[in-house]
């Protein structure tokens, strides 16, 4: 068994042993979305206009919350050192780690999003767009975020720094995804936006593992 598969297995096992790791961001997702009607306006005709954007912002924040735990424990307990010592391609490892992260953050968020749609009076026509945009968009968040997580894994208190680095990079995903949901809600097509998200996903899959691998190698120096 290669180290990549072993690591994917081990990380999934770890997530199963520590349910908080994936359940807390989900809870956070739910609560952030609940804040908007309370703080802004509970009127359904207003909510249905902002629902897509709010759900996406909440998903983005929830993703950020779980990113800090992606590489930091591995740096601290020496697992990263063992990866580097293994001579295996870091590209594969970075891709595998991002995949695991998506499985325990993006995927549950996607599955739970229709519930938030109900809470925020999302128009009926927009549910498909919401789920599809999350399905394509959240892997991009995981892949991009993994670069930030790799960069800040060795920094004490790097969680906040991670958000600073990554949020600007998330803007394009947010724009296209929220727009897809919004357009679906007013009965327009949203194929274009989904296609853009798909293009971003392809680009992120091809490039970000290189950046993450390079960032992980920085830990060689210490």
């Amino acid at each position: 068994m290669s180290l990549v598969t072993a690591t994917i297995r081990r990380d999934l096992l770890l997530a199963a042993r520590n349910p908080g790791e994936w359940a807390n961001p989900l809870m956070f997702f739910l609560m952030v979305a609940a804040l908007f009607p309370l703080a802004v306006d509970p009127d359904p005709s207003f909510l249905e206009k902002i629902a897509g954007g709010v759900i996406w912002v909440a998903a983005l924040l929830a993703t950020l919350l779980s990113l800090d735990g992606l590489y930091r424990p591995d740096v601290e307990d020496g697992s990263l050192e063992q990866w580097l010592a293994s001579g295996e391609s870091l590209y594969g490892l970075a891709l595998g780690k991002a995949l695991v992260h998506w499985c325990i953050s993006g995927l549950p968020l996607t599955l739970m999003s229709p519930l938030l749609g109900l809470m925020l009076s999302l128009p009926d026509e927009a549910y498909a767009a919401l789920v599809l945009s999350l399905l394509i968009g959240t892997p991009v968040l995981s892949l991009l975020g993994a670069v930030g997580a790799a960069l800040t894994a060795g920094v004490r208190g790097g969680g906040l720094l991670l958000s600073l680095l990554i949020l600007p990079l998330y803007i394009p995903v947010l724009i296209f995804a929220a727009s897809a949901v919004y357009h679906a809600g007013i009965g327009m097509t949203y194929n274009g936006q989904l296609a853009m998200l798909g293009a971003m996903l392809a680009l992120a899959m091809a490039l970000t593992p290189f950046a993450a691998a390079a960032a992980l190698k920085i830990n060689l120096l210490r």
């Binding site: 096992l13 042993r17 307990d77 020496g78």
Partner: peptide, 11 residues
């Protein structure tokens, strides 16, 4: 084998 054991506590 470095001075960090690379042992996950939950496993």
């Amino acid at each position: 084998l470095g001075h960090l054991a690379a042992v996950k506590k939950a496993l």
